[in-house]
Simulated scan of single mutants.
Amino acid sequence: MSDQFTDALDQTEEAQAAYAKQLGIKPDRIPFTAETLPNASIAVRVNQGLLNEVASHILNRAGHISIIDERGAGKSHFRDLVYDALSDGPRSDEFRVARIREVESITTRRFYTRLLDELSSFDDLDVPDSYPHATDEVREIVEDVAEQLEAQDIACIIQVDQLEDAARNTRTFEQLLAALQSVGDLGESEPVFILFLFGTERAGNRIDELRETLSSRLVAKDRTLERFEFAETEELIARWLAWAREEEYDGGYPSDPYTASAIDTIVEYSDGTPRNTRQKCYHAFRAGAQQFAAEDVVEIRDETLDTYL
């Protein structure tokens, strides 16, 4: 049995290497295999309307925001776009950004301390090196930092990712939501902290059930991300291929060897999320390698997918 699998490894490696060489792809850059984007140039430009809306709410401090969508829909990429712009972009001096991740077992106090830890990296904020044990006393420190931010007229964006992890446990989620509402209410005339929440539908529903007051303060509630159709899928393929060849992507970069019929099939069988679309593109590449080994045909067509998948 081990020899059988070893043979499969050898055959697959040979077919993949030959196909990659035919396409001018670097051997260590097989496209579509990485779960996270290996380079920002691969990201398809979508969700501009939602980015504009989020920008408006943050600039005006109009209220809090939740992006609620299924896994693989691109929430992490959207979050990173905003984070990178606000923390390192040309207008980063106008904002402070704090990331709260791994919330599965978080408590109210732990949320406060993580927030303070994030803000302690900013030189213009006075955050103590250690925190008291009592939750209310830690909150007082958060209030003091909020006053410092307000005095400088600076908003802090708090990004909380994967809310569904905490939503599995009612007690944990209640503590997290209590902390979120507590800091979200700080500020005299406008919020000092803007909550930017990410999760699946389960998390969105639980917020409504357990903390209706917080839910009502979401000025952009349960926003969803755009799905990939033909144009976005074609662009994704072209961007991955450019990266795999160590070439620069531009708007005219070809999606060859993927034909229009193959892209139509990928779109048809994908759920439209970036993750699932990437996976379908990967399987099409795999089919193309098998076809090239068997028939010496380079193009990936709908028949390629029917025959080799």
Score class of each variant (00 low, 15 high):
Ile157Gln: 01
Ala242Trp: 03
Gly72Thr: 07
Glu104Pro: 05
Ala244Asn: 10
Ile106Lys: 02
Ala43Leu: 15
Ser66Ala: 11
Cys156Pro: 06
Ala98Cys: 02
Leu59Glu: 02
Ala62Thr: 15
Ile154Leu: 09
Ile194His: 08
Phe228Glu: 09
Pro128Arg: 06
Ala203Glu: 03
Leu50Asp: 07
Val267Asn: 06
Glu137Ala: 13
Ile141Gly: 01
Phe228Trp: 03
Trp243Lys: 06
Val97Ala: 03
Ala15His: 01
Ser130Gln: 12
Ala15Trp: 01
Gly288Thr: 05
Ala146Phe: 03
Ile207Met: 12
Ala244Met: 08
Ser2Ala: 11
Arg110Ser: 14
Asp165Leu: 13
Asn60Glu: 00
Glu226Pro: 06
Glu118Ser: 11
Thr33Gln: 07
Arg301Pro: 01
Gln291Pro: 09
Gly187Cys: 04
Lys75Gly: 05
Val267Lys: 06
His283Ser: 10
Glu209Tyr: 04
Thr224Phe: 02
Ala238Lys: 04
Ala62Asp: 15
Ala43Thr: 11
Leu197Arg: 02
Gln16Val: 14
Arg301Trp: 00
Val160Glu: 03
Gly24Asn: 00
Ile266Glu: 02
Thr172Ala: 07
Phe193Ile: 10
Ala262Pro: 11
Asp153Val: 00
Asp306Ile: 13
Glu13Arg: 15
Asp69Asn: 07
Asn169Ile: 07
Glu150Lys: 09
Glu299Asp: 15
Asp3Gln: 14
Ala284Lys: 07
Leu9Cys: 15
Glu174Met: 10
Met1Glu: 12
Ala262Ser: 13
Ala17Lys: 12
Gln181Leu: 04
Leu23Arg: 01
Glu247Gly: 11
Glu248Ala: 12
Asp296Phe: 03
Leu218Glu: 04
Leu180Ser: 01
Gly24His: 04
Asp80Gln: 15
Arg286Lys: 13
Leu218Lys: 07
Glu102His: 15
Tyr83Val: 12
Gly288Lys: 04
Leu176Gly: 00
Phe95Asp: 00
Ser121Leu: 09
Tyr112Phe: 14
Phe196Glu: 03
Asp84Ser: 11
His133Arg: 15
Arg96Asn: 08
Leu241Gln: 04
Asp302His: 12
Ala85Asn: 12
Arg168Ala: 10
His133Phe: 06
Gln291Asp: 10
Thr6Lys: 15
Ile158Gln: 03
Glu201Asn: 10
Phe285Ile: 05
Glu190Ser: 11
Leu180Gln: 04
Glu303Met: 12
Arg109Thr: 09
Glu70Ser: 14
Thr213Phe: 03
Arg171Gly: 00
Trp243Phe: 07
Glu140Arg: 14
Glu234Val: 09
Gly89Ile: 00
Phe228Gly: 10
Glu104Asp: 13
Gln159Cys: 12
Tyr19Ala: 01
Asp264Asn: 15
Asp250Tyr: 13
Tyr258Pro: 07
Arg61Glu: 01
Gly89Thr: 01
His64Glu: 02
Thr259Tyr: 03
